[in-house]
Nucleic acid binder design. Structure first.
Lengths: 146, 146
DNA sequence: ATGCGATTGTTTGCACGCAAACGATAAGAG
DNA sequence: CTCTTATCGTTTGCGTGCAAACAATCGCAT
């Protein structure tokens, strides 16, 4: 009978219970916190991109996009804006004319330590409503659905 | 000594451990799943907007934006596109000339049941890597950081 | 050697998402 | 009644985010 009720009255579907909606809300809050603490006015994607380059030293643009979880079209725009800010540079790969190698400029390199510091603050503030155990749990769960 | 090591070697900061990065990844996967099951090519925001209207019947555009967690500029675009698709309509509020009231068209109303069904499928598939308990846990944690 | 499929990067088009500035209207204080 | 403040909707500008189509180059199989 309950099943029939649900079918007739319409499925009990509450937006605020759906992961997709909650993910959007959580991302919004995180973005706001990020912006508050952002170094040099960097966006979250620009931030991730810089960190990835610093991890690997040199990368082709497409490979960088994969490392930072960005579309080819998206990573291009991000890299272009980082170039405009003078934080990254590119050179052509001698052994593969298709590739353009992306690397940090001295200014970009000088920023990395700061970025990590503010990144830690941002993560901390985003997770502030949770206990330590909950924080670990959330991270683990998010990782699982990725 | 460990603290000093960390300070000297640079803070141990792994992108894949940061909530912000994980939220982006999870959102990406959810978006892909959403698109696969999307009714009428609706986007997640359009979907949420339609559901909110169906919950309240009639709303001013700004109020609708608040209900669906969207910026004034964003909700305008979403509503415009839903109008183009013939799913919502607007009329002016007699008692307040600033307001424009948004409501579902018959076509929009006819879609709601379908939307809820596919919404349930999308949520289910997004959470598939988790056990029931983990799913409840994730939703609860996301709600807390919102 | 060539020729075909895969990869690299670019461009276009559409859809959020937010800040900031704007004109119109409403509502409350004096 | 009028002045100030708040709210409503619009527009612009910038930054993701993804699909699709494209030219250039690579690399491998034949």
């Amino acid at each position: 009978m309950e099943k029939a009720d649900i079918a007739e009255a319409g499925i009990a579907y509450r937006l605020e219970d759906q992961v997709g909606f909650l993910l959007r809300l959580a991302s919004q809050r995180h973005a706001a916190i990020f912006q508050k603490h952002a170094v040099e006015g960097l966006t979250p994607t620009q931030f991730s991109t810089l960190l990835r380059i610093s991890e690997v030293g040199q990368v082709s643009q497409n490979q960088l996009g994969r490392l930072a979880a960005m579309d080819v079209a998206t990573i291009k725009g991000v890299v272009d804006r980082l170039k405009d800010k003078g934080l990254v540079a590119s050179k052509s790969d001698a052994s593969d004319k298709r590739r353009s190698i992306i690397l940090l400029t001295p200014a970009g390199t000088a920023l990395i330590a700061d970025l990590k510091r503010s990144g830690a603050v941002i993560t901390h503030e985003t997770l502030a409503p949770l206990t330590r155990a909950e924080q670990r749990s959330l991270v683990a769960l998010l990782r699982k659905i990725t």
